[in-house]
Every structure is written in structure tokens, then in C-alpha cells.
Amino acid sequence: MDRQTLFGLVVTLGILGVVLELVRRRRLREEYSLIWIITALALFVLNLWNAPLNWIAEVTGIFRPTVLFVVSVAFFLIILLYYSTVLTRLADQNKDLAQELALLRHELEQLRRPAADAPPEEPPAG
């Protein structure tokens, strides 16, 4: 096993370990950990099974030892893009919630406020 393979295995296992630990501590939701786990496993496999990398190097002309890194970068870009879409969704929902909150708070204040023309409330007994 050459040093680059060893390095790759350590890194991918490291990513996998950190992600699983974050899920275990409930700091990361399973739905968002899935894309990380797939990435780590895919890179782990590509470290040991080189045929796809050789093929990519041949087709694209990328220098063979760097192909794995190029593939890793592609995976990470996909993750970043995916998170940007998640952020957008959260921001939209956040805005909708803020608007709803402002409207409901006003409505609640209206309901709580005793009407000016209503008869005065009975004083509490005793």
C-alpha cells in the first residue's frame, strides 16, 4: 500500500468518524449526514479500487495521482451546493415565520386589549 492510499484511507475514515460522532451527539441530523457518509464511503472505496480513477484520468487527461483529489473536490462542491439550497429554504421559512409572528402578535394584542366602548368589567368578588 503506497503512502497516498494510506493517507486517503485515514482521511476518509476520519471524516466518517467525525460525522457519525456528530450524529450520535445529535449535533447533526441524519438527513444532512447522509450526503457526508456517502461521500466518505465513495472516497474510501476509490482509494482501494482504482479502476474508475484510471478511467477518469484517461478520459479527462488529468494527472493520474491527482484524480482522487479532483473527485473529492467534486463531492465537496456538491455538498456545499446542497447546503446552499438548504440555507435558502431555511431563510424563506424563517421569513415566513417572522411575518406570521408579527401578524399574530398584533392580532393577539388586539384581542387582549379591552374594547374602549365595552362595559367595564365586573370587579372580582371578595
Partner: peptide, 25 residues
């Protein structure tokens, strides 16, 4: 004024839209 207090700064677009939401509802 009918005062709608946003819980945090949402930006001019969302603020104006809140007014239109009020008018719509």
C-alpha cells in the same frame, strides 16, 4: 398606527410584504 413588530430585522422586502399580507388578510 397599527404596528407590526418584526421579531428581528427581515429586510425591506419582507417588511413591505408583511404590510401587504396584512392588507390581504
Amino acid at each position: 398606527a397599527i404596528t407590526l413588530n418584526m421579531p428581528f430585522n427581515v429586510g425591506i422586502g419582507a417588511a413591505v410584504q408583511t404590510g401587504f399580507l396584512y392588507a390581504y388578510r
